[in-house]
């Protein structure tokens, strides 16, 4: 809707709180990150060092590793997490008996403190007494009896990603909320035509929540780019830096008081995120974002 002259004040009033908070808690800190990323700031003194932090970072194997790992995480978000959430949302949208219970249950991991969930999954994957190995051994894969899932270079990332799938409930809830707004009229019409449930899902529900699906993909990709807690709590980037991700890397740099370099890593991360965000918007080309 084109804004009328006499409503400009209203409009400003409506966007002002968000802009003020955004300026205070995002713009200022990011400018601060940007400026200090060109210094060797250690918390007390800072000297201008030009691009040194950036060149050093890109020469570190573990930092490059963190970037590639993050890209894997993003890919998983778009190709596995959100599609799975869509499937579950579509199925629950049928509202068959007990669907509300399932919705709540699937959301539970979201509300449990991540420290506790990480401890559980670390115990599940444990090589000595973990349930995963016990089950694999039970169904005949005896090679895996003492397999150290999180402590093995080949399986650590896969185990982390497998664990992260228990959080699909987040995106399921967004898409499910969107289906709530779909008018029953559409389905009534389809029922008269004798459409099967699968056809209704495919031809009515799915197209109507397409833009929400894209929104979820963007959210999931960005969330996985700033992935911190699961990795920090379960592997802290190990073994041998093989599961390193950007935010854990940044956190480590800050803990060892290389604040300038940590902030440079933060700037790089924001830049990668901005590129991802812009290209996703182009790629998905949803009318929602025009």
């Amino acid at each position: 809707m084109q804004i009328k002259k006499d409503e400009v004040v209203w409009l400003l009033l409506f966007i002002a709180p968000a802009i003020i908070l955004f300026f205070l808690f995002f713009i200022i800190p990011i400018l601060f990150l940007f400026v200090t990323s060109f210094t060797n700031w250690d918390g007390i003194s800072a000297e201008f060092v030009g691009l040194e932090n950036y060149t050093k970072l890109f020469n570190k194997k573990s930092f490059v590793r963190a970037i590639t790992n993050n890209l894997y995480w993003c890919l998983t978000a778009a190709l596995i997490t959100v599609p799975l959430a869509l499937i579950i949302a579509l199925l629950l949208a049928h509202r068959s008996r007990g669907w509300k219970v399932f919705r709540t249950v699937l959301f539970i991991p979201q509300v449990v403190s991540s420290a506790a969930i990480a401890m559980l999954w670390a115990a599940m994957f444990n090589a000595e007494y973990g349930l995963v190995n016990f089950l694999l051994d039970y169904i005949g894969f005896s090679d895996y009896k003492n397999h150290n899932w999180l402590g093995n270079i080949r399986t650590a990332n896969a185990a982390l990603i497998g664990f992260s799938l228990c959080y699909v409930g987040y995106f399921m809830v967004i898409m499910l909320a969107k289906t709530a707004g779909i008018s029953e009229d559409y389905y009534d019409a389809a029922n008269i035509d004798g459409a099967s449930q699968f056809q209704k899902d495919l031809h009515i529900t799915a197209p109507l929540i397409k833009s929400t699906f894209f929104l979820c993909i963007i959210l999931a990709v960005i969330f996985n780019l700033r992935q911190f807690e699961y990795v920090y709590l379960m592997t802290a980037g190990g073994p041998a830096n093989k599961t390193q991700v950007l935010v854990v890397y940044i956190w480590n740099e800050l803990s060892v008081q290389r604040l300038g370099r940590g902030n440079a890593a933060g700037v790089i991360m924001i830049a990668i995120g901005a590129i991802l965000l812009l290209s996703l918007r182009k790629l998905l080309k949803s009318e929602t974002y025009n």
Binding site: F22, F26, P29, I30, L33, L219, I222, F223, L225, R226, F228, L246, V247, I250, W251, L254, G262, N263, A265, G266, M269, I270, G273, A274, L276, L277
Partner: peptide, 8 residues
């Protein structure tokens, strides 16, 4: 703003 690493 979503992609800002808050821990940093």
């Amino acid at each position: 703003g979503i992609l800002v690493p808050l821990n940093a």
